[in-house]
Design a protein around this nucleic acid. Structure first.
Length: 269
DNA sequence: GGCTGGCCCTGTACGC
DNA sequence: TGCGTACAGGGCCAGC
């Protein structure tokens, strides 16, 4: 499942391919999740940015229309690249560019989403509109995280996944960060010191994933079709019934607000 | 306004 | 071998 490290890896590879390119033609699956993709036709990509798990391609003004953004969320199984088959069974959208390449969005489970929005108007995507601070930005601080967590009575893992206290964390890196911080995923109260540990753990888990080009468990692929390398370095996620790397206790699998969760019953309190 | 749980969606694993 | 069922989970939304 693409989270911040995977989306950032894709962004870094896509940006030089798309910047300055004009979209000549496009097609999309009829589902409302994807059908707005052709609205990018006639536009020139200025830059490709990332917010949380969203990719945002800035589109230059065209024919009297103001600036716009092509927003892509990869969902669970989304792949984006120039080497995918636009006629393949799971292709959900494609854009033909003025250099002859065709960018294809493939998404087996259709949990992804595409939108072409007026510049800065994210009201059609509530999670994007309410997105919390970027984890590597100055806006994400230990104090701010502690205060944000304290504003809700939801479980700490649920808050991390909701994208409001910090952007870009999904199930893999939430489990990893909570394990690093020694915090139980179902905890509803996190003190100032533990929030500071969680702040460092979120940054550390995401940075390590980013350095490895992301985590490939099944569907995630880089723009050139390669796999991430971080799956071999996971300390917690997916290691249920195996010994905790810190204390040796057998890691336990549970369900926290409907999400599969792995944690250590001894060192995550 | 905040929280909870159901739904979407399809490939894979597993049991019978 | 083939069929049915459970499961995976990010974001949205209805209901409380």
């Amino acid at each position: 499942m693409p989270e911040l490290p995977e989306v950032e890896t894709i962004r870094g590879a896509l940006a030089p391919l798309l910047a300055g390119r004009t979209v000549l033609a496009a097609g999309a699956h009829p589902s409302a999740k994807f059908s707005s993709a052709p609205r990018a036709v006639g536009r020139t990509v200025v830059d490709v940015r990332r917010r949380g798990k969203y990719l945002l391609a800035d589109l230059a003004p065209a024919a009297g229309a103001p600036r716009a953004e092509l927003v892509v969320h990869l969902g669970m199984t989304g792949q984006l690249g120039p080497d995918l088959d636009p006629d393949g069974p799971h292709a959900r959208a494609w854009w033909r560019l003025d250099d002859g390449t065709t960018l294809v969005f493939r998404d087996v489970r259709r949990f992804g989403r595409i939108a072409v929005l007026d510049d800065g108007d994210h009201s059609a995507l509530p999670t994007l509109a309410a997105l919390g601070p970027e984890p590597f930005g100055d806006g994400f601080t230990p104090e701010g995280l502690w205060r944000a967590l304290g504003r809700s009575t939801s479980r700490v893992k649920t808050q991390l996944l909701a994208q409001r206290v910090v952007a870009g964390v999904g199930n893999i890196y939430a489990d990893e960060a909570l394990w690093r911080a020694g915090i139980h995923p179902a905890a509803r109260r996190v003190g100032r010191q533990r929030a500071a540990r969680l702040h460092a753990a979120v940054r550390g888990a995401l940075a390590d994933g980013l350095a490895d080009g992301g985590t490939t468990l099944r569907d995630y692929r880089t723009v050139d079709g390669g796999e991430g390398r971080h799956q071999a370095a996971l300390a917690c996620y997916g290691r249920a019934r195996q010994p905790c790397l810190r204390c040796g206790t057998t890691l336990r699998r549970s369900v926290v607000d409907g999400r599969g969760t792995t944690s250590c019953p001894a060192c995550q309190r």
